[in-house]
Write a protein that binds this DNA or RNA. Structure first.
Lengths: 119, 119
DNA sequence: TCAGGTAGGGATAAATTTATCCCTATTGAG
DNA sequence: CTCAATAGGGATAAATTTATCCCTACCTGA
């Protein structure tokens, strides 16, 4: 596991949120869990762009930040389900707002981003 | 300047937002510009944790994504002012929601983050 | 004349994040 | 027996992001 070499700066709310929500797939994970896709394999299928490995790592971070919880069923083959904690649930409206803004400006954003990406 | 080696994946709104809003200082820059701190030197003073260099770079990206505009006054010593475009302004409520969630859960977040940061 | 404020950017190093590859274990289907 | 599905993690490489350091230019005030 990677160990950070510098302490996080936690000055304002935005810093705090950044610490738990940065990570390429975290918001998507929270969102899909909220939508009912709770098993790791389901989440992996919902987010094909991410490798299994990264999703595991990011789920673990979300868990350590108590945004999600995890139930391990003692069955075989293994079965695991993630769920949103109340704390995690409180974040859903925020993620929703972000996603909505993105969706609303989909075309414009897409154009801008591609324009600034040398092919 | 760094040139990316992989194309961005733009599947959903969250991806799109990520492309323009990721970056350690971008939300803070937008927020402070919104609050009326428009000159680069003012912004640098408001965000002492960031080097001049990074703020310049991130401001340039915000500009290329048309979230902020820039007025260069032809005076000496140089004077520059950034402002939010209408597009940028539309993002303020979202940033506000993020910051509010962070502020509301300040103590809890701070505890969780520090707990997961080996000292 | 020299320090300090104004704005900007190149080159490079360091930190951090993501991606890849490979290995463990078990059960049921074919 | 072999392959796919289930879940997880180590080791390492690659990509990306941030930080550092240094240089340009001009004007004002001490």
């Amino acid at each position: 596991m990677y160990e950070r070499k510098t302490l996080p700066e936690l000055n304002c709310g935005l810093d705090l949120v950044g610490e738990v929500l940065y990570g390429k797939w975290k918001m998507r994970l929270l969102w899909f869990i909220h939508e009912g896709f709770q098993r790791p394999s389901e989440l992996q299928r919902k987010i094909p762009g991410a490798s299994r490995r990264v999703l595991n790592v990011q789920l673990k971070e979300l868990e350590s930040h108590e945004l999600v919880g995890k139930v391990i069923y003692p069955v075989v083959p293994p079965k695991v389900e993630y769920y949103l904690t109340d704390f995690g649930k409180s974040l859903i409206p925020v993620i929703d707002a972000i996603g909505q803004w993105g969706d609303q400006h989909d075309d414009h954003l897409r154009t801008l981003i591609l324009k600034n990406t040398k092919p």
